[in-house]
Nucleic acid binder design. Sequence first.
DNA 1: ACCTTTTTTGAGAGCGCTCTATACACATAT
DNA 2: ATATGTGTATAGAGCGCTCTCAAAAAAGGT
Lengths: 346, 346
Amino acid sequence: MSKLTLEEVAKLAGVSRATVSRVVNKPERVSPKYRERVLKVIEETGYQPNQAARMLVSRRSNILGLIIPSRADLIFTDPYFAALITGISRACNMHDYTLALFVFHSQEEQDQVYQRALGTGLLDGLIVTADKITDPLIPQIIARKIPAVYVGRPLDKAYTSFVDVDNVAGAYMAVSHLLRLGYQRVATITGPMSSTTSMDRYEGYTKALAERDRSIEDNLVVYGDFTRDGGYTAMRQLLPHHPDAVFVATDTMALGAIQAIHEANLTIPDDIAIVGFDDLSPATIADPPLTTIRQPVNQNGMLAVETLIDLLETGPVPPRHTILPTQLIIRATCGAMKFNNGNYVP
Amino acid sequence: MSKLTLEEVAKLAGVSRATVSRVVNKPERVSPKYRERVLKVIEETGYQPNQAARMLVSRRSNILGLIIPSRADLIFTDPYFAALITGISRACNMHDYTLALFVFHSQEEQDQVYQRALGTGLLDGLIVTADKITDPLIPQIIARKIPAVYVGRPLDKAYTSFVDVDNVAGAYMAVSHLLRLGYQRVATITGPMSSTTSMDRYEGYTKALAERDRSIEDNLVVYGDFTRDGGYTAMRQLLPHHPDAVFVATDTMALGAIQAIHEANLTIPDDIAIVGFDDLSPATIADPPLTTIRQPVNQNGMLAVETLIDLLETGPVPPRHTILPTQLIIRATCGAMKFNNGNYVP
DNA sequence: ACCTTTTTTGAGAGCGCTCTATACACATAT
DNA sequence: ATATGTGTATAGAGCGCTCTCAAAAAAGGT
């Protein structure tokens, strides 16, 4: 059996190459008679067009790249990325795009990986998690005019499209909830301040306090690093300053904080109340179950892909920004339940 | 600035297209004089060859596909896959291959995803997690003669290359350890028996018992599903039959089992001892810390990639099988520590 | 100095596809 | 009967690269 090409199929169907191409790409533009005949041959031979040839002329690969500029070992253990990748891959499947994954495991790998992702013209577009605001990646993407959508707000709004959740509002909601419940010394464990996500959540914290004329006490603000261990360490720093409630910027860190609180023989929420952020698996596994801010991570991922595909198909357009809402999920760690027979009415 | 092609670079360097191509691909076959000149132009212009054109003629894409035939939501929350993907992506980076990810979220998506992965000729080769032994994927891959390496032993050894850990030996080690410590009623929570991994671990369990002339008690064998909840449910089924030790086929399930034991107001290891399998994050997070079998997941992933690349470069060769060893990691749940002032000497 | 061998360069074909421009039916209008 | 239009098929160019093969240049031998 000779190599199965368009040419071959055309010969077998007794039509020209172009006709077969049309049957494959825009079947409605071929008369039913020929279309049937060609489809039959395709069916029989199991013909599938060569991607490379197709890419070469059409300049489209139907491959999207996902770049996650964080250390790979952190990425895959973090339930946030798990949910995000799930959403992204799902949307890719839905739209018949293939997903290529770009992560690096060391600083040295970074350049080489970026090169591969940006340089080869292999990818139609890029989804980038806008993790570190100083990452050299974003300027490169802009300079090369590669279609990209960021997950999370990058600093540069003018030249970038992104999808994000309303972190400020979410954090504000969390802290307001604690204040409303009467807590006096509301602390926060933030993420690394090199990410806009952390910045925004911190802003929500300050906003909620400011709105009630509370001042920010420096001792009650500790910087974490998004990991469980980081949350643990941060909480231990916080304990000597006797917070009666803590807004922890991620559920994963909250898990560490809870451990630190338990080890100090304090109870949650009676001695210290906790509100987290994310509402992913750690929130329900936590003991007691975590009051938290739910963010639609999965949906965010899907939306990023859909935005990107839209950008791809409609050509250069002004950057598009989508902000999804968050939601307060009340469980046991904020203490709201105990005020009202286990039913909290805001 | 006109389109940056080989042609263009050749013109700027005052050489032929072929020479530039040679500089890019096999620089040692070009005289230093020309090589320098061409490299300089490449440097200045930032030229990068078009992947599509390259693929078309060389029939190589430098893209590997990773197919994980499990529900996507399970994959990304499972620390096993986290470690595996980390290893795989790392090896891909090292060898300058791009990784494309193929997962599906529903049964309907499956076919379409397989089609995309197998049909388009886009991929040089495939890494497949040999999860479900009945998956239609493997026969398809064999039929199409697509270079592939499986992670985990597939049923068909004759036509497949794979890397795996020695699950039989690992499980045997775990159960022997428990028996040596004197436990009388050693139960097991297995994985789903549709996977060779689960089959092998169960075989190790039976082998250890048989070797000591213990019979397998049906009540002490419960089938789990690799999830934490599954482990919890399985343990609750087991409790009425009073096991004094349990070999749980994965750490994640062990987490659920531990929860069930605690809820029954039993203590670990005094009332029931536990040995897990994997030694990934759940093992150290567990309370008490989990005695388990360490398997080199990360390394396994890297090895899979390296085997595949080797296959790709050396052409059709007989299938290659690699089995990595496992290791017993003694922590608190097996009770070994308490026999000897916290120091276990086997 | 000339011929042979070896190394290096260049010309040209062609990978499999898409797409534009052109040719060709066939139906309808003149 | 010829002109006009409409839909549909084909011819042919070309996407950017690699690779073979022949030509040219350099090196070595007598």
